[in-house]
Computed example of a mutant assay.
Amino acid sequence: MKIYIIGSVGSGKTTLARNIAKKTEIAAYELDNVVWEHRPDGDRRRIPAERDAILQDILKKDSWIIEGAQYADWVLPALRSADRIIFLDPPNRVIQHRIVKRFIQQKLHLEEANYRPTFHMLWMMFQWSAQFQKEGRSQILHMLNSFQEKTVILKVKKDLNKTVSL
């Protein structure tokens, strides 16, 4: 099974990917870790060739779960290869609540982060969420038109059990 999960920051992508991975024992990959190399002296954005090579290595596997907010052309090979695409599209108020909840949990060291949970990062999360609502959502829906037969759009958590059969 090859599953691609897409949605805004705070939509529940990572949580869903981890839950499916635990249930199915399929490896889950965060696109943020494909785009960024985390180093002790600070994160470094990978050059496109390096990023694309890492994605291609993941796509060669028999099964995978890939999750991310990215909707640029470089992710199209993953969308084409996926058996199931899940677009998490909860209401904006839910996303904002989750962003704040995640920030508090990370500050209290109850949840790990791939970045330092600073107030600047919290502000950036809200900015990315607003950008997603303004442009990203419609661009993703347009991009997913080519994959309608394998795409599921989930707006509320209770739809997950009814719609996603693995």
Rank of each mutant, 00 (worst) to 15 (best):
R80N: 10
T15W: 10
W74V: 07
D73Q: 15
K60A: 13
Q70L: 13
G42Y: 14
L79Q: 11
V94H: 07
V164P: 09
L59S: 06
E67K: 12
N145S: 07
Q127C: 10
R51G: 12
L122M: 07
K61D: 12
L144H: 03
R45L: 13
R39L: 15
K107P: 06
I26P: 06
Y4W: 09
G42D: 10
S81R: 11
P48D: 04
G12H: 07
W36F: 14
H97F: 11
L76H: 04
E50H: 06
P40Y: 08
F87A: 00
I47M: 14
S146P: 06
E25W: 04
N161S: 00
T24D: 02
G68N: 14
N33M: 14
Q96H: 13
A17L: 13
V9A: 08
G12P: 15
L154Y: 01
I6E: 02
Q148T: 03
R137G: 06
S165H: 15
T163Y: 14
I58S: 11
K162A: 09
P91T: 05
H97C: 09
L76V: 07
Q105A: 14
E30H: 15
L122V: 02
I99L: 09
A53P: 12
W74P: 13
I6S: 04
S129G: 05
K134C: 01
N161W: 02
S81M: 14
A27R: 04
L154S: 00
K61P: 11
R137M: 05
N114E: 06
V100K: 13
